[in-house]
C-alpha cells in the first residue's frame, strides 16, 4: 500500500461538510478502479450462512432458557395489595433508581429526555467527526473546561446525594485525566485511551452510570426501595 503508483484512487471523507466520495484523477488519465477482490465476498452463501449460524446460536440460547427456566407469573393482579417493592421492568429500573434520588420531573422526565435527545443529535453534532483524541489539541484549554464541567457535575451529584452516579463519574474523570497526561513512553492501553474522542468519554460515562443504576435497581433494592444485599435473604 505504501509504494506510490501512478494512478491512485483515493477515497476520503471531509467530515466538516457533508461527506462525499471524491476520486482525484490525474490529468490525461482515466480513472482506474482497482478491484479489491480479496476484500469482498459473495453475500450468498458466505454472509447468509454466517447470519444463519448466529441465529442458530441465539435460538439455542433462548430455547435452552425457555426449556429450563419458566417465565415468572405471580398471583392475579390485585389493586388492593401492593407488593413491596413494586418494580418496573428491569430496563426501567435505572430510571426508577434515578427517581429515588431526583424529583420526578428531573429523574423521570428531564434526564431521559436529555438522553434521548443526545442520542438523536450525536451524528449531527458535527464536532470532531474525525474522532480525534480529546487531548491531542488545545490540551490546556480543554483541561480547564473539563475541570469546570466535572466539578460542577460532582457538586450537583453530591447535592442530590446520587452516590450511584457519582462513583462512575469519578472513575471516568480519573481515566480521562490519566489519558490527558503527556504521551511520552505511554503504554498500549494509555495510547489507546489518548486517542479516544470526547464523545467516547461521554458515552462511556453514560453506559457506566446506566448499567450501575439498573444493576442497583434490579438486585439491591428491597421493600420501600431500601438497600438490600441480594445474597442475604
Amino acid at each position: 500500500m505504501s509504494d506510490q503508483k501512478p494512478f491512485q484512487a483515493a477515497i476520503e471523507s471531509d467530515s466538516r461538510k457533508a461527506p462525499v466520495r471524491i476520486a482525484f484523477v490525474t490529468r490525461r488519465t482515466s480513472p482506474q478502479v482497482k478491484a479489491e477482490s480479496d476484500q469482498y465476498v459473495m453475500t450468498w452463501p458466505e454472509g447468509i450462512f454466517r447470519v444463519l449460524v448466529v441465529c442458530e446460536v441465539l435460538a439455542i440460547i433462548l430455547v435452552t432458557m425457555s426449556l429450563f427456566w419458566d417465565a415468572p407469573l405471580e398471583g392475579l393482579a390485585d389493586p388492593m395489595q401492593t407488593p413491596n417493592p413494586a418494580k418496573a421492568p428491569w430496563y426501567f429500573l435505572g430510571l426508577q433508581e434515578l427517581l429515588h434520588y431526583f424529583p420526578p420531573v428531573v429523574g423521570g422526565v428531564l434526564i431521559p429526555t436529555l438522553v434521548v435527545l443526545a442520542l438523536v443529535i450525536i451524528p449531527y453534532f458535527n464536532v470532531n467527526v474525525e474522532a480525534e483524541g480529546l487531548w491531542l489539541r488545545n490540551r490546556g484549554k480543554r483541561l480547564r473546561i473539563f475541570a469546570a464541567v466535572v466539578l460542577a457535575l460532582i457538586v450537583f451529584l453530591i447535592v442530590f446525594e446520587v452516590w450511584a452516579v457519582l462513583a462512575p463519574t469519578v472513575l471516568i474523570a480519573a481515566a480521562m485525566l490519566f489519558a490527558a497526561r503527556e504521551a511520552n513512553n505511554a503504554g498500549r492501553f494509555r495510547r489507546w485511551l489518548i486517542l479516544r474522542p470526547l464523545s467516547f468519554w461521554i458515552m462511556t460515562w453514560f453506559l457506566a452510570s446506566a448499567s450501575l443504576l439498573t444493576g442497583i435497581g434490579t438486585f439491591f433494592r428491597g421493600p420501600g426501595w431500601s438497600w438490600v444485599w441480594p445474597w442475604k435473604e
Partner: peptide, 23 residues
C-alpha cells in the same frame, strides 16, 4: 465459530433440533 461456517451451521442445527425435541 466463523472459521468454518458450514461446520458450525451443521453442528448447531443438530443441537437446535435436539433441544427443540425436548419441548
Amino acid at each position: 465459530l466463523f472459521g468454518d461456517s458450514a461446520r458450525a451451521f451443521g453442528t448447531l442445527g443438530v443441537v437446535l433440533l435436539l433441544l427443540l425435541a425436548i419441548v
